[in-house]
Computed example of a mutant assay.
Amino acid sequence: MSDSRTAHDSRTSLSAQAARNLATATVTVPQMTEITPRWLHKLLPWVDVDGGVYRLNRVAKAPKGRPANEFGEVKVDLLTVDSGEPRLPATFVDYELHPREYHLSTIQTIVHTHTRVTDLYSNRVDQLREQVRLTIEAVKEREEWELLNHGQFGLLKEVSAGQRIETRKGTPTPDDLDELLTLVWKKPAFFLAHPKAIAAFGREATRRGVPPPTVHLFGSPFITWRGIPLIPTNKLDIDRAGKTTILLLRVGETHQGVVGLQKAGVAGELEPGLSVRYMGTNEHGIASHLVTRYFSVAVSTEDAIARLDNVSVKFYHDYVYPKG
Rank of each mutant, 00 (worst) to 15 (best):
residue 226 R to W: 05
residue 150 H to C: 01
residue 27 V to Q: 12
residue 266 V to I: 15
residue 106 T to K: 13
residue 183 L to Y: 04
residue 239 D to F: 07
residue 52 G to F: 02
residue 75 K to R: 11
residue 302 E to C: 01
residue 8 H to G: 01
residue 246 I to V: 15
residue 107 I to A: 08
residue 215 V to L: 12
residue 123 N to P: 00
residue 290 L to Q: 10
residue 80 T to E: 13
residue 38 R to F: 00
residue 283 E to A: 15
residue 312 S to Y: 02
residue 203 R to Q: 12
residue 320 V to M: 09
residue 103 H to M: 05
residue 164 R to S: 04
residue 44 L to E: 01
residue 224 T to W: 03
residue 71 F to C: 00
residue 287 A to R: 08
residue 282 N to V: 02
residue 239 D to G: 03
residue 204 E to R: 11
residue 133 R to A: 14
residue 115 T to C: 06
residue 7 A to V: 12
residue 164 R to E: 10
residue 324 G to I: 07
residue 38 R to Y: 05
residue 168 R to P: 00
residue 85 E to R: 14
residue 242 G to V: 04
residue 179 E to L: 11
residue 241 A to M: 09
residue 263 K to D: 13
residue 100 R to C: 01
residue 30 P to H: 06
residue 130 E to F: 06
residue 243 K to R: 15
residue 245 T to M: 07
residue 275 S to H: 02
residue 50 D to W: 00
residue 131 Q to I: 00
residue 271 E to Q: 15
residue 126 D to W: 02
residue 138 A to F: 00
residue 216 H to M: 13
residue 314 K to C: 00
residue 199 A to V: 09
residue 248 L to D: 06
residue 72 G to P: 04
residue 198 I to Q: 09
residue 108 Q to H: 11
residue 271 E to T: 15
residue 153 F to S: 10
residue 40 L to R: 06
residue 193 A to S: 03
residue 11 R to K: 14
residue 5 R to M: 08
residue 305 I to G: 09
residue 79 L to A: 13
residue 6 T to V: 14
residue 41 H to N: 14
residue 64 K to E: 15
residue 194 H to A: 08
residue 102 Y to F: 10
residue 162 G to P: 04
residue 29 V to K: 13
residue 301 T to A: 11
residue 312 S to E: 08
residue 171 T to I: 12
residue 193 A to E: 05
residue 231 I to Q: 10
residue 265 G to E: 08
residue 207 R to Q: 09
residue 259 V to N: 04
residue 162 G to F: 00
residue 268 G to I: 08
residue 173 T to M: 10
residue 315 F to D: 10
residue 210 V to H: 09
residue 247 L to N: 01
residue 5 R to G: 03
residue 110 I to P: 06
residue 152 Q to V: 12
residue 76 V to I: 13
residue 9 D to I: 14
residue 304 A to M: 03
residue 259 V to R: 01
residue 289 H to E: 07
residue 26 T to F: 03
residue 22 L to K: 04
residue 136 I to M: 15
residue 254 T to M: 12
residue 310 N to I: 01
residue 109 T to K: 12
residue 93 V to G: 05
residue 263 K to H: 12
residue 313 V to H: 11
residue 307 R to S: 14
residue 204 E to G: 06
residue 55 R to E: 10
residue 113 T to Q: 09
residue 165 I to T: 10
residue 302 E to A: 15
residue 184 V to W: 06
residue 299 V to H: 07
residue 153 F to D: 08
residue 35 I to Y: 09
residue 129 R to Y: 09
residue 149 N to A: 04
residue 33 T to V: 12
residue 244 T to R: 10
residue 318 D to P: 04
residue 297 V to A: 03
residue 248 L to F: 02
residue 161 A to G: 01
residue 300 S to R: 13
residue 221 P to I: 02
residue 55 R to F: 00
residue 310 N to T: 09
residue 140 K to R: 13
residue 147 L to N: 03
residue 45 P to S: 05
residue 61 K to D: 12
residue 192 L to T: 01
residue 70 E to N: 10
residue 56 L to G: 00
residue 28 T to Y: 11
residue 63 P to C: 03
residue 29 V to R: 14
residue 266 V to P: 01
residue 185 W to D: 15
residue 240 R to V: 10
residue 250 R to Y: 06
residue 293 R to M: 02
